[in-house]
């Protein structure tokens, strides 16, 4: 059987232009899902649209040949973070259907700030990277797991360990915060 090893799902099938077009299309999906996430009045729907956006971002990582990151994205974000968020929504009695007050009174200010930020940043970014190209084709690129792993454990060991301590602290913190005090003692 003729075996073809593709180093990254997706990119191997596509020509450079194809990658570009796919990237833009998926990007539009991501943006759309993100927009719905921040505007929908149904709380759980927001979380589900967030899944779409995050999954789309994982695909974008694949297109950028960062395969390992992509799977981490799926594992952590889609598999855990969103589940936690849904968990939180359900524990705080998220209603089914539209909440009339999902947005606060700040929404017009928020819209202004967000639009201004978007405008400024797009302008700056477009101005800065007008003629910059990245090569997403080379085989066995930086996204390969082996490469990422060796760089992570060779050059980034110290930050990695520091991160472990941070995670431990977060774990302890979350436990302390969510533990119920025994009866008779003040909160």
């Amino acid at each position: 059987m003729n075996v073809v090893h593709h180093n990254a799902a997706g990119s191997g099938f596509l020509s450079p232009t194809g990658v570009e077009i796919t990237f833009v299309l998926v990007g539009l999906v991501v943006l759309g899902a993100a927009l719905v996430t921040v505007t929908t009045r149904q709380l759980v729907h927001a979380a589900l649209w967030l899944v779409v956006a995050l999954g789309g971002i994982a695909v974008e990582y694949l297109l950028l040949t960062a395969e390992f990151i992509a799977w981490v994205q799926v594992l952590i974000y889609v598999g855990s973070v969103v589940v936690l968020l849904l968990f939180g929504l359900m524990l705080t009695k998220a209603p089914i259907g539209r909440s009339p007050d999902a947005d606060s009174e700040n929404r017009w200010v928020a819209l202004g700030v967000a639009l201004a930020a978007a405008g400024t940043l797009v302008w700056v970014v477009a101005d800065a990277f007008r003629s910059t190209w990245i090569d997403v084709h080379p085989a066995n690129g930086p996204g390969a797991t082996a490469v990422t792993g060796s760089s992570l454990f060779r050059f980034w060991v110290l930050p990695f360990e520091a991160l472990s301590v941070l995670l431990l602290a977060a774990l302890v913190g979350a436990i302390v915060l969510s533990r119920r005090r025994p009866e008779g003692r003040d909160r």
Partner: peptide
């Protein structure tokens, strides 16, 4: 399809399945 990080891929995608349960239960 021989995925380079196959093990990771498998575990990651399997984790998504629980969303179905959550969605069903809430909806």
């Amino acid at each position: 399809e021989a995925v380079d990080a196959g093990l990771f891929f498998v575990l990651a995608v399997m984790g998504v399945g629980v969303l179905g349960s959550l969605m069903a239960g809430w909806a």
